[in-house]
């Protein structure tokens, strides 16, 4: 454990100040003082400062974590400004992490916000060790796998997520995650006719799997073949887009719309074929809706993702295991447990 980590652990056990109590009043009333103490010790990496990254950042900075590092080597594009509200529209062409730092900091002066303009592909294991939570977005699949493994071996909570146009996903790997859960029980009380409902706190453990395992399930196996009908097409759309990003090093581009749609459909057919899944499982019109990042969809994915981080850090409430999907066509926010 690094020296920095020790210091932070100490800080999280310190008393919440009256200033913090005033600022965080409405959430302390919801999740309690202990959760707030744990939050303020948490060091977060947001890699990929896109619309969803901005939403996750905003929610965590507001909640009062210890620190957030914004990591992204890309320059701000016009498209980014339609969803990343942390970067000023007049900073187009500048590094997106640097451009987003100031507004992220202003959200809550009690949180340390630092921008890092380097490329995540150049980061070594040492870099990740200084975080309690790593959230990765806008990233090639092989990078996700690599970072996930680094996080596993260093006991760091790992989340990945992205929004493509009107479709979004979140993945989480919290390893063996122990948390306190509230259970309501009817209890017989002497002297009272009716049982009284009591809230009990029970300790539970939930086991997660790395992203490779969640992406490489065998859909011909009896278990998953049976589940296929109920599985959200969003799971496969996500894989198509991961593949696209890995091939082209970018997300679908509105200015290359027609060509990218063709490419997306090619990838889809190849992927579903490889997985022995009928092509109609994913309707072809998905490719129309995956350009740019629609702000409201970023808000939904970023909200759910940040809440998962808050729950995980405060070790409170059952986590969503291990995917969350939302797309505007279905309008459903669905949790899928795949590979676990």
């Amino acid at each position: 454990m690094s020296h920095l980590k020790m210091r932070v652990m100490d800080k999280s056990s310190e008393k919440i100040t009256e200033d913090e109590a005033a600022l965080y009043d409405r959430q302390i009333r919801l999740w309690g003082l202990d959760a707030q103490k744990r939050l303020r010790g948490a060091r977060i990496l947001v890699a990929g400062v896109c619309g969803m990254g901005a939403e996750v950042t905003k929610n965590l900075v507001l909640a009062g974590v210890k620190s957030v590092v914004l990591l992204d080597h890309r320059d701000l594009t016009q498209n980014d400004t339609f969803s990343n509200f942390l970067a000023p529209p007049d900073a187009i062409g500048q590094n997106v992490a640097m451009a987003s730092e100031e507004r992220a900091q202003v959200l809550n002066p009690m949180v340390d916000v630092v921008a890092d303009p380097s490329n995540i592909e150049e980061k070594t294991e040492e870099f990740f060790k200084d975080f309690d939570v790593v959230f990765v977005s806008r990233c090639k699949r092989e990078q996700l796998v690599k970072i996930n493994n680094i996080c596993r071996s260093n006991k760091i909570l790992f989340l990945a997520g992205d929004v493509f146009g009107q479709v979004g996903y979140m993945f989480s790997d919290f390893m063996d995650h122990s948390y306190a859960d509230e259970v309501k029980e009817k209890v017989e009380v002497p002297g009272q006719d009716q049982p009284v409902e009591e809230t009990k706190i029970v300790r539970r453990v939930e086991s997660f799997v790395p992203i490779t395992q969640a992406l490489e399930v065998d859909w011909t196996s009896p278990e998953y073949n049976k589940r296929l009908k109920r599985t959200s097409p969003s799971y496969f759309i996500m894989q198509v887009l991961m593949e696209f990003v890995s091939l082209y090093g970018r997300t679908p581009d509105p200015t290359k719309r027609d060509a990218d749609i063709v490419e997306l459909l090619t990838i889809k057919n190849a992927l579903l074929d490889k997985l022995s899944i009928p092509p109609e499982k994913v309707k072809n019109d998905f490719a129309e809706f995956v350009f740019g990042q629609l702000s409201p969809v970023c808000a939904i994915l970023g909200g759910v993702t940040a809440q998962e981080i808050i729950k995980a850090v405060s070790q409170k409430d059952a986590p969503l295991k291990n995917f969350f999907f939302f797309n505007t066509v279905e309008g459903v926010g669905i949790v899928e447990s795949i590979g676990v």
Partner: peptide, 28 residues
């Protein structure tokens, strides 16, 4: 005093994440 304030002031706890999700749905 903290608990009395909740009850007497009818404070409904509120967090950023829930509001963000709901505001996204409003636009959709």
């Amino acid at each position: 005093r903290f608990d009395v304030k909740s009850m007497a002031g009818n404070i409904i706890p509120a967090i950023a994440t829930t509001n963000a999700v709901i505001a996204g749905l409003i636009v959709l």
